[in-house]
Design a protein around this nucleic acid. Sequence first.
DNA 1: CAGCATCCTCTACGATACTG
DNA 2: CAGTATCGTAGAGGATGCTG
Lengths: 118, 118
Amino acid sequence: MARIGLDDHEGICGVAAAISVIDGKWKTTLLWLLESGPHRPGELRRKVPRLSEKVLTQALREMEEDGIVHRETHDVVPLKTVYSLTEQGLALSKVLAPLSDWGHGHLDWLAEARRAAS
Amino acid sequence: MARIGLDDHEGICGVAAAISVIDGKWKTTLLWLLESGPHRPGELRRKVPRLSEKVLTQALREMEEDGIVHRETHDVVPLKTVYSLTEQGLALSKVLAPLSDWGHGHLDWLAEARRAAS
DNA sequence: CAGCATCCTCTACGATACTG
DNA sequence: CAGTATCGTAGAGGATGCTG
């Protein structure tokens, strides 16, 4: 999605703001993984093989900026870094649950509709 | 956002499916407008000036395919078309409410964080 | 007025190579 | 192992002109 600016939609800016935070091809996946506990970058990459390292770092940085992910670095060799959800991030993932339910209820319909359309 | 395929994320595909439906710069806005009642294309364009006609039609077509918008055409001159939400679309907009609340709770934090980051 | 076709731009994503 | 830098690509979004 083209990144939605916070000022683009006056009336619905709450939703727009939330979406701008989870906007990107992988952020929802990362949110979901981190919901189950802290992860190291290597773990994340292994669990999401199609996610390149550049994009992973980029996504994590943005999520950190937006206050939903916490980054903790241990200064040892080899380098060790751990990512976890903040309170806000956890709250966000909870709020996503109803959306997930709706999605599951529509999976069949969607698959059918899009097959017919193509 | 790069369009999320329904098969890209196994575990979170419910959320992914829902997001794929509201994915695009304007669909959430359209959903919000249509929630208050049926609209004609011209009305939508007037209420969202920065939305071009091509993109509007495109978005509405996709939303129609995904079963959240209903299109009704009256064969008169001049042409008349009315768009409205389906039951599914209405359900989706309801489900978006908690997300909106989360977003509103983070607007200040987000604006601050992103200003600092840039 | 509703909608389609064309061209163009911009950027998120991806692949690769490299540093501490 | 974590992270950065560079280059290339595909597709969403935008501007404009045309049709019934």
